[in-house]
Amino acid sequence: MNPIDFLLAPLEYEFFVRALVASALVGVACAVVGAFVVLKGMSFVGDAVSHSAFPGVVLAYLLGLPIILGGAVAAIGTALGIGALTRRSGLRADAVIGVLFAGMFALGVALFSSIPNYVGDLFHFLFGDVLGISFADLISLAVLASLLLLIVWVLWKELLFATFDPLGAGAAGLPVRRLDDLLLILIAVTIVVSLQAVGIVLVVAMITTPAATAQLLVKRFGQMIALAALIGVTSSLVGLYVSYALDIASGASIVLTETFAFLVALLITSIRKRVRANRAVAQESVR
C-alpha cells in the first residue's frame, strides 16, 4: 500500500474521521491548559482531577445521566476542594492532593464493582475509546474546546501575570485566587471532555507532555502554548493512525507518540547544549 492510500483508506470510515477530529480537539485543549499546569508545577493536580472524575462518571452511568456531566461535577468539585483544603488545612498541597485523589478513585472503584459484569466497560473508562465517540460527544467537545480557547484569549495578560508572579499580581489588585479557581475549573473541564479519547489514567500525559516538550524548545510563553498545541494535534493524528495500523489502543498510541516527541526534544536540547559548549571552548582556544 502506498503512503497516500495508507492515509486515505481509514477516512472512508465515518467513525475514524470523527475520532480524528475529536483527538485533534483534545490535543489542542489539553496542550493549552497544560502550558499553565506545567509552569505552575501542577501536573499532579491534573492526575488527581482525572482520577477523581471516575466516581462521577460511574454514578452518571448507573443513573443513566450524561457521563460528561457526572465526570465534570466530580472533577470540578475535587479541583476546587484541593484549592480550598490547601488554603485552610495548613497541609502541603501534595498531601491534600494525594488524599483526595486516592479517596475519590477508590469511591469510583467501589461504585463500579457494584455493577455486574463490569470488566469490559472498565477498560473503556480507564483508557478511553476515541473510535467510539458519538457525533453528540464531538459537538460538545468542539464547543468546550472553543470556549476554553476564548477564555484563555480574553484573560491572556491576567493569567500570564498570575501564573508567573502571583504575589506581584495580587498586590497590583488582580483577583489571583479567582484566576486560580478558574484555571482549576478549566483543567477539570478539559480533562472530563478528554476522557472519552484517552481515559482517566492517561489524560494527564495529554496535558503535561506537549507543554513540557514545548518548554524545552522555546523561550516565550506565547510560543510555548502555540508549539504545545501543535505537538498535541500532530501527536493525536499520528497516534490515531498508528493505533489503526498496528491495531493497538488509541489513547495509549497517542500518548506514546507524545512521549516520543518529548524524547526527541530532549535529544535536540542536549545536542544544542553540547554544540554551544564546544563552540565556546573553540572560541576560547582561538584567543
Binding site: 495578560k157 501575570f161 499580581a169 523561550k219 516565550r220
Partner: peptide
C-alpha cells in the same frame, strides 16, 4: 519561566 524581559515589564501595565 519562558518569558522575556519586556514581557515581564509589560506586566506592570496589566
Amino acid at each position: 519561566f519562558p518569558i522575556s524581559v519586556d514581557e515581564v515589564v509589560m506586566m506592570g501595565r496589566t
